[in-house]
Computed example of a mutant assay.
Amino acid sequence: MVSIVTLAHQHVDDGAKLFVQSYAKQRESMACLPPKYAKHETAAQLLEGILENHPGVATLSDGRLVGYLTGYGMIPNFKSIQPGAYVPEWAHAAADGHDRERIYQFMLENLSRAWIGNGSFAHAITFFAADDALRELFCWAGFGLLVVDAVRVIDPADRLKPAEPEPEIVIRQANEGDLEELARLDNELINYLQRAPTFLFPDHEKEPDTAVEFLGENAFSMVAEKDQRLLACIRGTLRKEDACTIVQDASVMGIDFAYTDPNVRGMGIGRRLLDEILDWGRSRQKTACAVDFESANALGSAFWMKHFSPVCFSAIRHVDPRVAESGDG
């Protein structure tokens, strides 16, 4: 007999086992992913933490846990002017061989009803890129792809071997004399992402500190310059923080900024900058590099997919708030 119950602390142990099994499948195609998330205690700690303040559901088959789903609700202005809910990749799993698709459908139906009741109308979920069945299931449930988290191995012997740009274009590390130009590139990227086809609204509430963002002790920025004007920049970080959980590890460096002037795209500048960023990671004993990007950003997606492999997809759906007003939520 299958039943849906409230996810509770007594389900954490079996839930962690389900996640570890799912993570093992993703690591089969991307062995450089951190091993710590394959440990039962790591998954259990994550689940214990979210259960303190956020609802979740569990599916039991003859009293045994075969699926769970939870997430963070009531996130203000979540990808809209409405509150929303977000499910990380470790906050859901279902056992194979137990009508997995139906289990997810039941859990999503029950938990999304609670989200709507709490006033959360944007629902986002992150899942492993290797899980084609889940990708299709969420598509049928009304979710659309939003963000891709991707990784590449940093091999000591592996270089991109990009073509040399024009002799007049200088590739170098950014310095304090570049702050005004770096701020300009930052603003150009924000404006670019706000327009079609990406339509990404900036979510920072205060002006960024350009010096800290680009030249801080945890950052490494490479730029392309011509005639004292910056044409492009890629920024590397010692850790990838603003991304899916499974790439957040001391062994994984990150990239959190990349922009090239439209007039010089297609000249190999981005590949040259990326090569320098990866060299920086090698010098700091990083074994992998992670990046995340909006799937709707066609130019950005094309570049990153040439050099990185997806490990997680994040999908989102927006529910019409009027369903709550009608009492049908």
Rank of each mutant, 00 (worst) to 15 (best):
E217H: 14
V212A: 15
R239Y: 05
E207Y: 07
D209A: 09
T198Y: 00
L193Y: 00
R184L: 12
L193M: 08
A219Q: 08
R195L: 04
F220L: 06
C233M: 12
H204N: 11
I190N: 03
R235A: 04
I190D: 01
D227P: 00
L200P: 00
L179R: 10
D178M: 03
F201E: 13
T237W: 01
E213L: 14
P202S: 02
L189R: 10
R184T: 13
G177A: 03
L179A: 01
F201M: 11
D209R: 09
C233K: 02
L231G: 04
L182C: 01
A183M: 06
E205V: 13
A183T: 09
R235F: 02
V212L: 11
E181Y: 04
N218F: 10
F220P: 01
C233D: 05
E217R: 12
L215N: 08
A232R: 04
V212H: 12
E176H: 15
H204T: 14
L179Q: 09
N175I: 03
K240A: 13
I234M: 09
R184A: 06
Q228T: 08
T237C: 10
N191Y: 04
T237P: 02
K240I: 07
D227K: 15
L200E: 10
P208R: 06
G236A: 09
A211E: 13
E213Q: 11
A183L: 09
E207T: 15
N218P: 00
M222Y: 09
E213Y: 15
D227W: 05
N191P: 04
T210Y: 13
C233V: 15
G216M: 06
A232L: 07
P202Y: 01
P202N: 01
F220W: 06
E225P: 08
P197C: 04
V223G: 03
L200H: 10
D203H: 12
L185K: 07
A219P: 02
A224C: 03
L182W: 04
A232F: 05
L200W: 08
K206C: 06
L189Q: 12
E188D: 12
F201W: 08
E180C: 08
L182I: 01
P208V: 07
F214I: 01
L185H: 08
A219T: 09
V212E: 13
D209L: 03
V223T: 02
T198S: 03
T237V: 13
E181V: 03
K226M: 11
D178P: 08
E180L: 13
E181H: 11
E217G: 10
L230S: 04
R195F: 00
